[in-house]
Write a protein that binds this DNA or RNA. Structure first.
Lengths: 174, 174
DNA sequence: AAATTACGTCAGCCATATTGACATATTACC
DNA sequence: GGTAATATGTCAATATGGCTGACGTAATTT
């Protein structure tokens, strides 16, 4: 039960659901799901001259109003230069608003403007509906299973953060 | 039961697992899982001067030996110009081999060389291990649920193709 | 006063995608 | 046999979203 994955072999007669074929199906399913999951918002964004990166920023700023730049960087795992470009465009075009932190005035706490919230809702709606449909069709039990598995795919160090994060929505820092 | 998603409202007292909060968790989980799922192979690829796009091509050519260019395009959903660059590099560097179709000699059937197979195994191994661990920890039932949900996220027209695809591995065309 | 932190920015590079136009070989059809 | 359609490739231009490295500034910490 310890060596469920026989290294570098396709013919491993693995027990259960851990056969090479099943794992490959998992890899592919994740690819297809992600591919189609991002398709609809991408189309909306393209009209506005924005890209997927903007969506991610808008999404997480909406989710954690008052988030700092470095916290956002930690979530997105990109460099500050990359984020900076995205963020400054969103500020320039009035989707996101910055205000200095109260406790630490070096910080620039981020929040969505009304325009930003509107776009966030519009973008997220398509994904929420897609997920809701999938959830509904699969049933509560399957959903619980899905969450378990997906969480297991995340780097271990990140897992705690994610579990700690939800509900900690209103972190108005100033 | 029909309008489980009340449009543009956060406070919808939805039944079950379909509350806004749950759906958002789903969105995020997918983001985190995908982010970390692609991290390891990306590092290997970077050393070789390749990118994620090369991985995808290698993966699916490995999975469907003898696949045609247009079939591969249909899976990846990118333009042929994009694929062309990736593919010609992989051929040039000896990871992928082309041979004309037997029945239709316009086709260039794709298959991995030994070098390509080696790289494919190396890349896929990290993902397979990650999935295997997640599966093992979550249990068979959760895995089944996960598959159901992820499949539900895929565009409907694609779903059939995916279900039809697995096992149809050996499509040696020439 | 000096070091560190939070953030921004400039410059340049690379990978991955796009569209549009055109070329070639092959097959299919009338 | 000639024309149309198909499978593939290619050239050129463009955009996006990452990256590294270096430097700057304001605020906080020590």
């Amino acid at each position: 039960m310890a060596d469920v994955i026989s290294p570098a072999t396709k013919l491993a007669p693995n027990p259960l659901f851990l056969r090479d074929e099943d794992l490959r199906q998992g890899i592919e399913l994740l690819f297809y799901a992600y591919r189609d999951f991002t398709g609809e918002p991408d189309a909306i964004l393209a009209e506005l001259g924005l890209g997927r990166a903007h969506h991610r920023a808008i999404y997480f700023v909406g989710r954690h109003a008052g988030i700092t730049v470095s916290e956002l960087l930690a979530i997105l795992k990109i460099t500050k230069q990359s984020l900076s470009r995205v963020l400054s465009q969103l500020v320039r075009e009035g989707y996101i608003q910055q205000r200095p932190g109260k406790r630490d005035r070096r910080q620039r706490l981020l929040e969505l403007t009304e325009k930003g919230k509107e776009l966030e809702r519009r973008l997220t709606r398509t994904q929420r509906e897609r997920i809701a449909r999938a959830y509904r069709e699969a049933g509560a039990e399957a959903v619980a299973g899905c969450r378990k598995v997906l969480l297991g795919l995340v780097d271990e160090t990140e897992r705690r953060k994610i579990l700690a994060r939800p509900d900690g929505t209103t972190k108005a820092g100033a």
